[in-house]
Design a protein around this nucleic acid. Structure first.
Lengths: 217, 217
DNA sequence: TGTACATCAGTGAACGCGCGTTCACTGATGTAC
DNA sequence: TGTACATCAGTGAACGCGCGTTCACTGATGTAC
């Protein structure tokens, strides 16, 4: 499912070839995620990452061109996982029509949230991607791609509503949906199920129903 | 309108007293915003801010306890301006009922977006507030407060729908609404009016209509 | 209105520290015969 | 199956630079009489 050209940026130096190297590579990313949560984007450093990973700096620079390449790879890895969830879900549910999609909305929101929860520093990676100018394009491209996939799935499962309108509607809905993630991490006084239920309800009203109406009108 | 306890954090060292000092203080914040957009949150530095502002570091440390106090103040200033817009709008429109609020939704979205546009580095300030652990609470508190105000206005102008449900609905809607800002800055291929119209439509369906139904049911 | 003094606003120069990154190297793993 | 060699994976130690912050100071503004 994961397209390797999306997962690995060209900012990488050497691809890990041996099993041991792959472990090192993944470990550096995991540690980076943890540190992003602990010390934040403007305190994290390559030296710190290496120390925490039990390695020396040249080990990092073997795989990553520079500091931003680490964050770039970290972001792509998480976005690819989130993207896979959406793609899998669409493949499963979109042949069954808009009704099924409306009903499954809560599931996919939950699954996406869980993927971010399971990723070391998950939410902090998403936030860093937004806040660092050098990395913003990674998020932008991933979201544009997801919009494309989702709009195509909607168009296919309905009576072909106007293409551009649909694209924009899906784009806005996707942005709304992913901002629910943010809420889930921030608003910890409320149980996640309640927040997800609420967000799902809003999205259903906002996205799915209008499209169904447009299709049957 | 602006509550000074919200605008000025206690991380400030000395309050500016003379007119010249106020100018210096505001100038440091403006420059910080610009630099946030130019070099990003993890490249900005106190030395850089001072150099760009045509001052020396001790001038900055006269007013700000440390580097985070600058970003804290910068964030509070922008959030206060955005909050004022919401408060003013609610005061004007909420006495005229839910219908008027639904109709004015596009206006307040536009005004909030404009406020961020006019602020040096506006969108980058919002992003930085999210991405830096030490600052995240500033945004969280401001949004919680806005939710309170907005929920109160809705409750007052309707037949008192259940308090907790309403709070959550408004909280989610607010998060959605502010994520539209992000979209406006990111998706520059589309004209802003189109994005705002779309976001407004989704929010109307998501927030205002359900509450009206709940109130009349 | 002028002067003496107190307070406010900013400068010049530097501090120690950790940053991102690299050089020259050693040890571990895979491959050919 | 054993050995020789090539390639891959990582280490040790350090570099120059800019970071956040401070000390002791000078100049600008306000205030009392």
């Amino acid at each position: 499912m994961a397209d390797s050209s999306a997962v690995f940026s060209n900012a990488l130096r050497t691809m890990p070839k041996q099993g041991r190297a792959v472990q090192t590579y993944e470990r550096l990313l995991d540690v980076s995620g943890d540190l992003l949560a602990e010390v934040g984007i403007e305190r994290i450093s390559t030296n710190l990452i290496c120390a925490r990973a039990g390695m020396t700096p040249p080990a990092l620079y073997r795989y990553f061109k520079d500091k931003y390449a680490v964050l770039d790879a970290l972001g792509r890895r998480l976005l690819a996982r989130r993207g896979d969830i959406l793609t899998l879900w669409l493949a499963e549910v979109s042949p069954r029509g808009a009704q099924a999609m409306a009903e499954g909305l809560g599931d996919v929101l939950t699954a996406t949230w869980q993927a971010t929860l399971n990723e070391p520093g998950g939410i902090w990676i998403l936030r860093a991607l937004r806040a660092v100018p050098q990395l913003a394009h990674v998020r932008a491209e991933a979201y544009a791609e997801m919009t494309e996939i989702m709009a195509a799935a909607f168009a296919a499962s309905l009576n072909h509503p106007p293409r551009d309108d649909l694209w924009l509607r899906v784009r806005v809905a996707l942005e709304f949906a992913f901002s629910a993630d943010e809420l889930l991490f921030e608003e910890t006084r409320l149980p996640p199920e309640v927040i997800i239920a609420e967000a799902t309800d809003l999205l259903r009203r906002a996205l799915v129903e209008p499209i169904r109406q447009a299709a049957t009108a």
